[in-house]
Amino acid sequence: MMRYQILNALLHFLFFFIGAGIGSFLNVVIYRLPRNISVNNPRRSFCPSCQYQIPWYHNIPLVSWVLLRGRCGNCGTGISPRYLGVELFTALMFYAVFWTFKGDWATIPFWGPQVLCLWVLMSLLIAGTFIDIEHYLLPAEITFYGTIAGVLASVWVPGLQAQEVWWMGGLMSLASAAVGFGGLRLVVELGKLAFGRKKVAFEKPEDWSVTQPVETEPPIVTMGEDKIEWADLFGMQRPTDRLVVVCPKLQVNDQNFQEVTVELYVETMKVLGKDGKVETYDLENVTRLVGTASSVQIPREAMGLGDVHFMMMIGAFLGWQAVLFTIFAASVLGTLISGLTRLTGRAQWGKYLPFGPYLAAGAVLWVFYGPQVVAWYLMQVTGRGADY
């Protein structure tokens, strides 16, 4: 009996540490993928500051960051606590999946395909979440390849889609991916119609400009002390999206204007005078764009296409019921967090809030509690539960 308890404890520790090890790899993905750096070359992790390739004894999950006090062992530069956080969070998620879905130890294996598939999903959700928080994007390497992984997982484990036959699991995964993509895309378009513009009037004219500090990267719009990236304004590439700025003063290249309205589109710009005269510019030919603004109208999106693809991936893994639950849960969480940022005065004009983390949180809630919550709700409303 004692030997069994010791082996049991060791297995629990093993699965927790496996999660920490995967979290260490996810840190590599989170840092390199948005910077177009191969996750395989260089093979070893390196310090972002001095490029020193970290030896294995300085790269032990959870342990090394603490022992080195969050600093590079070579140059002493601080290493973000995010590295420790990702390792710890991944370890906790892996252990939670194992503990929740291990089944009856006496009758079925505690280690099974369902646990492996959900570990893959958790890894994708964690990587996507932290990339979206830092870079406001969800790479296709995560969303599209994750969708393929979800379909294959559902073929291997049809129970992910509440099916018993492999081919039905695959078909339901494809259908659920379509529901995830189409459902969230519909939310994007409806959100654009309802909340697609935001107008801000300033008490006194604010300095504003459009600059491109790095030639190979998109421009940045500066309005007073706030900055917003071009992709946050025109990420969907709609030809009708426009940033409208009412300008007491404006300079375009070597031309000066007064009391005009500027309409900025994805690739062009119009300057409208009070006399009805309109001048059109190709933004590629505009090298200087500065002025003052008395008001601004900002194009807004409910979310980006990366979120739509992220939802497609979630549907491929978890089914159409999870899609509906995740969208609802993410919307509630997003509304609460957004409301808190506004109440605390942390919200900036036109500032884009990444929705991917809320979708990931909604999916995690579904994995652990979703079917039970839905069954409880249906019981309260109809007096009958639901079969999942």
Rank of each mutant, 00 (worst) to 15 (best):
S24D: 00
L305R: 10
R43S: 13
L250H: 03
V155H: 07
P109I: 01
L283S: 11
T326Y: 07
C117K: 02
L116T: 04
A96K: 11
A347I: 05
S80D: 14
R69N: 10
T100S: 12
D387L: 14
G345A: 00
V179Q: 02
M379I: 01
N41Q: 13
P139H: 06
G356H: 09
E301P: 06
L343W: 10
L333Q: 02
Q321E: 13
L340V: 15
D254W: 08
P218R: 09
G146T: 06
L62G: 01
K198W: 10
V367T: 09
F16I: 11
E206Q: 15
M379L: 13
N8E: 14
G383V: 00
V115C: 07
P55M: 07
L272R: 10
C72Y: 00
P219D: 00
Y388K: 00
L121G: 03
E225G: 05
W366M: 01
P239A: 11
P109R: 03
L243Y: 04
V97L: 12
W99F: 11
I54V: 06
H58F: 08
Y136V: 08
K270F: 07
L378V: 00
G319C: 01
R69A: 13
A330K: 02
A375T: 00
V290D: 14
G191H: 03
A9K: 07
D207Y: 12
G73M: 03
L68E: 07
A360G: 05
M1V: 12
F144G: 03
Q114A: 08
G196D: 05
G276E: 05
G70Q: 01
A231Y: 13
L359I: 10
R44P: 04
V245R: 01
F234H: 08
L118S: 06
Y377K: 02
L340N: 01
S80N: 11
F144R: 09
G362E: 03
D282F: 11
T240K: 14
L186I: 10
L353G: 10
T77L: 01
W111F: 15
V165M: 13
K102Q: 14
V39W: 09
I133F: 14
K249L: 11
F257S: 05
M93N: 05
E217K: 15
G362A: 09
Q255T: 12
T240R: 15
Y145E: 05
L14E: 13
M223Q: 07
P219C: 01
A361K: 03
L343S: 10
R35I: 08
E141A: 15
Y4K: 11
I18H: 08
L137D: 09
L186W: 13
V373I: 15
A347Y: 10
E263W: 12
N41A: 10
K198T: 13
F202G: 03
T77K: 14
T211Q: 13
E164I: 13
Y52F: 15
A363I: 09
D307K: 06
F181W: 14
G146V: 02
P139N: 04
T147V: 03
